[in-house]
Each structure stands twice: as C-alpha cells, then as structure tokens.
Simulated assay, not measured.
Amino acid sequence: MKKYGFKQALVDHTLFYKRNGDDITLLIVYMDDMIVIGSNTNEIEKLRSYLAKEFEMKDLGVLKYFLGIEVSRFKQELFISQQKYTLDLLAETGNSACVPIDTPIENPNDRHMNAVNHILAYLKSSLGKGIIFSRHRHLDIIGYTDFDFAGAKLDRKTTSGYVSFVGGNLVTWRSKKQNVVSLSSAEAEYRALHHAITELTWLKILLSELGYGLRNLD
C-alpha cells in the first residue's frame, strides 16, 4: 500500500489512506478481509485493480456483511446490526426455539448456564435492533462515562464504561470491570474518566491524521 502512495495510520496500523485534494480513499484490513471506501469512485476502482494484480482476491461488491456485522444503506444513513450473527449463535447453542426475553441480565448463581441461556434469549428479542449513522454536517467528538463504585459483590471492583460519538453518531463503547479495587468513589471516577479520555483522544488524532479538522473535544 505504501508503494501505491498510501499512508499507514499511526493510531491504527490496519488502516491505510490516500488524500488527493479534497478526496480521500481508505482501506482497512482484518486478517484476509478488507474494506475499501472513499469519496472518489475512480480512485476506488484504481485501487481495486491494483490489489487484484498483487493478490488473488474476490470483490464482494458493496459492503453488506463484515465480521458479523450487517450493513444496510439508505440515502442519508447507514444501519448496522448483528441479526445473522445472533441467529447463527442461537443455532449453534441449540437455542433457536427459546422464548425471547426483554432484559439482558439476571443474577448468576451456581447454575451459570441458566444465565447464559437468559442472555441468548435476550439476543433473540433484539434481532432487528442496530445502530444508525446519519449525516449531521459536523464532526464534533463527544463522550459520556459512568461507573458503579465497588459494584462487584465478590471482589468489590468497580465497573466503568463510556460511549463516544463522532458527528452525532455512536462509534465506540466499552463496559469493563476496573483492574484494581478503588479506595474511594473519586478514585473510581478518575479511572473511568481516564479510559474515556484516552478513547476520545484516539478518535481526535485519527480524524486529524485523515485530514478532518475538529471544532471541539467535549
């Protein structure tokens, strides 16, 4: 890709990009799968032809399915979901006939398999749910974070999480138990903020590297 004039993103080494004036072409790689997108169809076709000469590959056309995520396109929006992935998971675990459940969590006890089956039943109830990406004419980065101080009853660790938005669209999210036991709610909050700010900073650097100026970082 570098020989072909592309640059490798510093914050994501699987992402390659090429700018030509206001146009940009991007390629992201995962194992032996890749996605090519851009603002200029001619540049995209040139890249496809170049890759076809260098590698034995199959062009699957417009993106519809990638790493378990289904993609649907509308005039001004993209919709992503994991309906097929969920159905496959239910089939593999023998839960295709389970009754859907509207809540994702129950209190696990010694019979942890019951909790697993409960989660699978919840997934079945959310097959049509997904995320919509719309154009909002800005690239503002906004993040939210929260935590439950010492919420884990067994080890008293805190679970913290964050969500981040770019241009009004949800792009990344995380919920994970903190690695250490916080001695105060202030300490737990600072740890939660640390993870959220790290993610927002990464997004800001990535967009700046791709040539998109940002008005603010909230």
Rank of each mutant, 00 (worst) to 15 (best):
K53M: 07
K157Y: 06
K18N: 07
D102F: 11
A192Y: 00
G61S: 08
Y30C: 05
A52W: 10
V11T: 10
K7F: 10
K53V: 14
D146S: 10
D23F: 07
H13V: 07
T41F: 09
G21P: 05
S182C: 05
D32E: 07
G68T: 13
L123V: 06
N20M: 09
H13P: 02
R111C: 10
G213Q: 14
K3M: 12
F149T: 06
S184G: 09
A52G: 15
S39Q: 06
V99W: 05
E70H: 04
G161A: 04
N117C: 11
K7H: 09
R174V: 10
S185C: 12
K58A: 07
N20K: 14
V99H: 14
A121L: 10
S175V: 10
G21Y: 05
V36T: 04
H194F: 15
L87R: 05
I142G: 01
N20W: 12
N114A: 11
L127C: 08
K7Y: 11
T198L: 08
T145F: 03
N109W: 06
H136D: 09
L89A: 02
K64P: 04
D12N: 12
D33T: 03
G68Q: 07
G168L: 06
Y50K: 02
L26W: 02
K75V: 08
I141V: 14
S208V: 06
L47S: 00
Y162V: 00
M1V: 14
L193C: 09
F74K: 14
R215G: 10
P108R: 11
A91N: 15
N95Q: 14
H13T: 10
Q178M: 04
T86K: 02
Q178R: 01
M113W: 13
E92A: 15
A152D: 15
G94N: 12
G211E: 06
V171N: 01
G68K: 11
R19T: 05
E43T: 10
K3C: 07
G211K: 00
H138V: 12
H13E: 10
H112P: 05
Y144C: 13
F133G: 02
D22A: 14
R191G: 03
R137S: 14
Y212N: 08
D140H: 07
A97K: 15
L207W: 05
T86I: 13
A91E: 15
H195P: 00
Q83A: 11
S160R: 01
S134D: 03
E56S: 14
K129P: 01
N216K: 15
D146T: 06
I132W: 10
I197K: 01
D22V: 13
A91S: 13
F165W: 03
E106W: 04
Y162Q: 01
